[in-house]
Amino acid sequence: MSVAFIDSHMVEKFVENSQAFDKCIEERFNMLDMNQDGVLSRDELQNDANDSSFVELALQSKEEVDSLYDVLFEKFDTEKKGGLNRNEFGLLMKEVMLAKAHGFGETPVCVIFQEDSLLRRVV
């Protein structure tokens, strides 16, 4: 774990730096794609969500988590194949990161990062 202060501008700058952001997304996608079929299934994404960086999901009921994944797949699985390809996953992660940036606002916030946190790459 590590600790740093970040704000919305830092996160936005990271997302806008397509070379660095795309590299991180590619690494994360490859790590999650356990069967290496080039598509992230719901199970592969949920395995990632079971790690400690998704503490918020641990506080939700199974129905709430299932509903969240239904919404994510409805929006980002544009090919409606039941999984997210690299591009779709990148779009999802971009939206997640920009939502976090919006939540941080312009005032620096102290954040504790897990080792594999995408936010950790911002600093």
Results as ranks from 00 to 15, higher is better:
1 M>G: 08
2 S>V: 08
3 V>S: 14
3 V>K: 10
3 V>T: 14
7 D>Y: 03
11 V>A: 03
11 V>W: 04
13 K>Y: 08
17 N>A: 06
19 Q>Y: 13
20 A>N: 14
20 A>F: 11
21 F>R: 01
21 F>P: 01
22 D>R: 08
23 K>D: 13
26 E>L: 09
27 E>W: 06
28 R>N: 06
28 R>L: 06
29 F>V: 00
31 M>R: 12
32 L>A: 02
35 N>A: 06
35 N>H: 02
36 Q>L: 04
38 G>W: 11
39 V>P: 03
39 V>G: 09
41 S>K: 01
46 Q>P: 03
46 Q>Y: 14
47 N>P: 05
58 A>M: 15
61 S>G: 02
63 E>H: 07
65 V>E: 15
69 Y>P: 04
70 D>P: 00
74 E>W: 13
79 E>N: 15
82 G>K: 00
83 G>C: 05
86 R>Y: 10
90 G>M: 08
91 L>R: 09
91 L>N: 12
92 L>Y: 09
93 M>P: 01
96 V>G: 02
97 M>R: 04
98 L>I: 02
99 A>P: 03
100 K>T: 07
101 A>I: 05
104 F>I: 01
104 F>D: 07
104 F>C: 00
108 P>M: 01
109 V>M: 11
110 C>K: 14
110 C>S: 13
111 V>F: 08
111 V>N: 07
117 S>K: 07
119 L>M: 15
120 R>A: 12
121 R>H: 15
